[in-house]
């Protein structure tokens, strides 16, 4: 049986965890924008995580995730040497990387993780990369130096003003759009509300805005349709048609409602497993 040991663990910010996982077959094929599906325990669910980095030589995949529910909390308790029960990928379509000229990469919170390999690939493809990253507060800001290396210009915002611009990444998007001419494409990855707001900010100018949807999934290979997203009035499956879509065409209200589908069940799972702990240890 193939096993997926955790080789390295970091806590880059409170409630965020970084794992470097040995998965040579996935690392050999991974591209920016793709994701993996993993399972922690036999009775556990399958959850998608966007790939934050990959190293073909070392045969590793890096994921960074936030503890938002039962499974991610369970996952964060794993230590170096522990093995993931399942680790499947690379899934989804890669980001469309080419030399566009001048591009913008916007990452919010844990969304900076998946934006990083995209920014890096865009830079390697010869683009002039302007990156904007933001978090609620300074200590939650991740990958600043990596993003600085992958970008020609880096702007930072925190909601509370503890670091960089006092405000949201959308303020900086507006600023960059004023300062820079002939922007070709913008990527925005982060919380749904952030991606929606960035898309609304760029909509009047028509600047092409790619967002990475992170809906509820089960199989991640197009089989179940749990991850339905409405894009330009058409139903798409984020797992095989995405996860990246044109942010100006995404039905955000629908996406927000679908993301909340199992909110009550999440609470029930947490309550049920309390005391017993998760089955992963």
């Amino acid at each position: 049986m193939v096993v997926f040991p955790i080789l390295h663990k970091e806590v880059p910010a409170p409630s965020l965890t970084l794992f470097v996982v040995k998965a040579p077959e996935i690392a050999a094929k991974a591209e920016p924008g793709q994701f993996v599906i993993l399972r922690v325990e036999e009775k556990g669910e399958r959850i998608p995580l966007t790939i934050a980095d990959f190293d073909r030589q070392a045969g590793t995949i890096t994921v960074i995730f936030q503890e938002v529910g039962y499974t991610t909390t369970c996952l964060a308790r794993l230590a170096v040497g522990d093995e993931l029960l399942d680790f499947v990928g690379p899934l989804g379509l890669p980001s469309e990387i080419e030399n566009y000229g001048k591009v913008v990469c916007v990452g919010g919170g844990v969304g900076i993780a998946p934006v990083y390999p995209i920014a890096r690939a865009l830079k390697e493809a010869g683009n002039h990369v302007i990156s904007i990253i933001g978090a609620r507060t300074k200590e939650l800001l991740i990958l600043e130096s990596e993003m600085a290396r992958a970008s020609d210009r880096l702007l930072v915002a925190t909601d509370d003003g503890s670091y960089g611009h006092h405000g949201f990444v959308t303020d900086l998007v507006r600023q960059v759009m004023e300062e820079e001419k002939d922007l070709a494409v913008l990527w925005a990855i982060g919380p749904m509300i952030m991606m929606k707001n960035v898309a609304e900010t760029t909509r009047p100018s028509g600047l092409k805005t790619m967002v990475s949807m992170n809906p509820i999934m089960v199989d991640g290979t197009g089989m179940c349709g749990a991850c339905r997203v409405s894009v330009g009035g058409e139903t798409k499956f984020a797992c095989v048609d995405g996860p990246e879509f044109d942010g100006h065409l995404v039905d955000w209200n629908l996406a927000v409602r679908r993301a909340a589908m199992y909110r009550d069940e999440e609470q029930r799972v947490i309550a049920y497993h309390q005391g017993g702990g998760c089955g992963c240890h």
């Binding site: 009775k43 556990g44 669910e45 399958r46 039962y70 499974t71 089960v218 199989d219 089989m223 179940c224 349709g225 749990a226 589908m261 199992y262 069940e265 999440e266 029930r268 799972v269 309550a271 049920y272 497993h273």
Partner: peptide
């Protein structure tokens, strides 16, 4: 979709929720 409904119940054993973590509504 029937695939999702049945996959949640059969493969992920949502009929044993919350012991099994995958939910079904």
């Amino acid at each position: 979709s029937a695939n999702e409904f049945l996959t949640r119940s059969n493969l992920m054993k949502a009929y044993l929720f919350p012991e099994y973590v995958t939910p079904i509504k």
